[in-house]
Nucleic acid binder design. Structure first.
Length: 636
DNA sequence: CATTAGAAT
DNA sequence: GGATTCTAATG
């Protein structure tokens, strides 16, 4: 009998290694076993109105703005109604349709939808936190400790979820044979094959057909199991959203964000689509690449023009070299990978918004200061409301500049710092906006005005009472358990960034230790903007002086300086210390950014000496901003 | 800092 | 398609 072919030793082994399995735990982007979901609310605005009005699911309804429709529910679509149909046509096509008007003077009109969006997100988080909480074994409890899914709000009605940590937990729970090898030194050993030969897919899951060379008869590998578990989790999330809030949504489950996003729109409404690894080629091959995120605009058009096709399947034939002749290296490499289903962008939890803008274009242009001011009030209220959601009240984040844009024939903008000494409120924003508008008006050519907008930006992390920085400095499991109570959203997973972090930790601690307020090691505001009820042992005086100086009422005696960065005033002799404080906080902020961005990617070069930049006085723009720039673009 | 472009929903 | 929102590049 001839010896077995060389494949035989591998027959009982998986294509995947213990290392690749282990990477799931931290939600690494580097493992092919990753499980990412994209969830998309079905015709969101329409559903919001249906929920609000108690409209039955099978009643046709659309949300109307002006004469056009901005959302059409699924009950109305069979009548041929879509967003490019006028209200009158819709009525004709479907006489019994409910046309819910979106009040004209809107601006506030998005608010209810935002509120619903928040509720939905919260429900999803709760559902995820709940999932798998029933593990009984002690050892397992330990292993699953703090495993939580990262959740990125992609828009008002879309989220990405990194299911990997949860899937990791579930795998260990259901396949005990995987546990032992994780301790072994040889992480590059292959996993055993999964014990199952046929997977119990839920009949409601839509499976994308496998690649041509693959067969449903083949035994599944762990990536298939991962998808199965992912689908199970997503189903429970969707179910929670339905049960608690009465919204339906569609989802895609796949190896990465790009595939998940494409998947979620495959079967709507109220369905979930699974793109298994073995189906990726077949799946993507049928798409136009202009459907892929970031390729829907001019870049996509250019590529189409360059290579004479918009089919993924045809672009696959273009070798990387040739892509490089028309596109810059970065883009070429990214494109080459993305059309092959390789997308390593991470699910970015706690997407920190960088600016908030409220705008209005005027159909007949407006002609007077009065009209303009009316809108400034609306803008200020709108932005203020969003700032509150973002945590201004708790002092978690705070914008430093406010900008007014104005358009007649040309457009102009003016910005000023937001005084850091005062609490932000609606009126303050309005006053600042009015100042800006007056500046614009003073230059003439103001009316008629076709467009006005107000925005705030340059956010600084207020670090609402020491939790965030401290939590970050603690590593690993401690951090996670610390994190649980107060900020369930933030997933902090340092391990991959270990090497470069170490140095910084030292720096940060060193500088945080310096200030003479030796209280509780808190790197918080020296003058404590918040009125924290928390009885701090050593600080009643601190709070008092803080309030006094921000009031500006008791300042005459001691010589003061005003910090150019935060515009707060302090006794002269505290200046050095205050500068150090800014420096330390810059470092911490930057470090946190880095950890988020780097985790799993190549380490980035840290900009040389933050110290030097923090000394620089003017412009209120010390160490912040620059460092995260380079790798912002396309992470892969 | 101001302006403009690009992308997405 | 229009309006709105956000981000990044550029000078």
């Amino acid at each position: 009998m001839p010896p077995d072919p060389p494949t035989s030793p591998d027959v009982k082994l998986s294509r995947y290694t213990y290392r690749q399995l282990q990477l799931l735990r931290q939600g690494s982007t580097a493992t092919p076993l990753r499980a990412i979901a994209h969830i998309d609310l079905d015709a969101f605005y329409a559903q919001c109105e249906m929920v609000r009005l108690g409209t039955p699911r099978d009643t046709p309804l659309a949300v109307r703005q002006w004469d056009s429709l901005i959302a059409v529910n699924y009950a109305a679509r069979p009548s041929g109604i879509n967003r490019m149909v006028t209200a009158a046509e819709a009525r004709k096509l479907c006489p019994n349709i409910v046309l819910q008007h979106n009040i004209k003077t809107d601006k506030v009109s998005l608010d209810p939808y935002r509120a619903e969006s928040r509720k939905i997100l919260k429900t999803m988080k709760e559902s995820l936190d709940q999932w798998g909480a029933d593990a009984t074994e002690v050892e397992l409890q330990r292993q699953m400790q703090g495993l939580s899914a990262g959740l990125e709000k992609a828009s008002i009605d879309e989220v990405f979820i990194d299911l990997s940590p949860l899937v990791f937990g579930a795998l260990l729970q259901r396949y005990p044979e995987l546990r032992a090898g994780l301790q072994d030194e040889n992480r590059d050993a292959e996993l055993p094959r999964p014990p199952t030969t046929a997977l119990p897919w839920n009949h409601e899951d839509c499976l994308v057909d496998l690649d041509l060379q693959e067969s449903e008869e083949d035994d599944p590998d762990w990536d298939d199991i991962v998808m199965l578990l992912g689908a199970e989790i997503v189903r429970s999330v969707r179910n929670a959203v339905w049960e608690k809030l009465n919204y339906t949504c569609s989802a895609g489950i796949a190896r990465n964000k790009m595939l998940a996003k494409l998947g979620s729109s495959c079967n709507k409404p109220n369905k979930q689509t699974v793109v298994r690894n073995r189906a990726v080629q077949h799946f993507l091959g049928g798409y136009k690449f202009t459907q892929i995120r970031m390729l829907g605009g001019k870049l996509g058009d250019q590529i189409t023009a360059f290579f004479g096709t918009e089919q993924v399947s045809e672009l696959l034939n273009v070798p990387l070299e040739q892509l490089r002749t028309r596109l810059d290296d970065h883009t070429a490499t990214w494109l080459y990978a993305i059309i092959r289903g390789d997308d390593r962008s991470e699910v970015n939890p706690r997407t920190q918004i960088k600016s908030m803008l409220s705008a209005k274009s005027f159909r007949p242009s407006i002609e007077s200061m009065d009209q303009a001011e009316k809108w400034l009030h609306i803008f200020a209220a709108d932005i203020y409301g969003r700032l509150v959601e973002d945590g201004v009240l708790e002092n978690r984040r705070r914008p430093r500049v406010i900008t007014l844009h104005h358009r007649t024939a040309q457009s102009r903008s003016r910005q000023i710092p937001i005084p850091a000494s005062n609490a932000i409120d609606e009126n303050m924003l309005f006053d600042l906006a009015r100042n800006l508008l007056r500046q614009v008006v003073a230059e003439g050519q103001t009316w008629p005005c076709s467009n006005l907008s107000l925005s705030v930006g340059s956010f600084e992390d207020g670090v609402g009472k020491n939790k965030a920085i401290e939590g970050f400095l603690v590593r690993g499991d401690q951090a996670k358990s610390l994190d649980q109570l107060t900020t369930p959203r933030e997933t902090i997973e340092p391990p991959p960034a270990e090497k470069k972090r170490k140095v910084d930790d030292g720096d940060i601690k060193r500088f945080f230790a310096m200030p003479s307020h030796a209280d509780s090691s808190t790197p918080d505001e020296p003058e404590s903007r918040t009125l924290q009820p928390e009885p701090e042992p050593a600080s009643p005086t601190k709070i008092l002086t803080g309030e006094a100086s921000s009031d500006g009422q008791f300042e005459s005696t001691v010589p003061q300086f005003i910090c150019s960065r935060c515009s707060k005033s302090f006794p002269e002799h505290d200046k050095a210390e205050h500068d150090d404080w800014h420096f330390a906080k810059d470092l911490a902020i930057q470090d946190r950014q880095d950890a988020r961005n780097t985790q799993n990617n190549q380490p980035l070069p840290r900009t040389s000496s933050p110290r030097a930049s923090s000394v620089r006085g003017r412009g209120g723009r010390g160490g912040r901003g620059k460092p995260e720039k380079g790798q912002r673009r396309l992470a892969f």
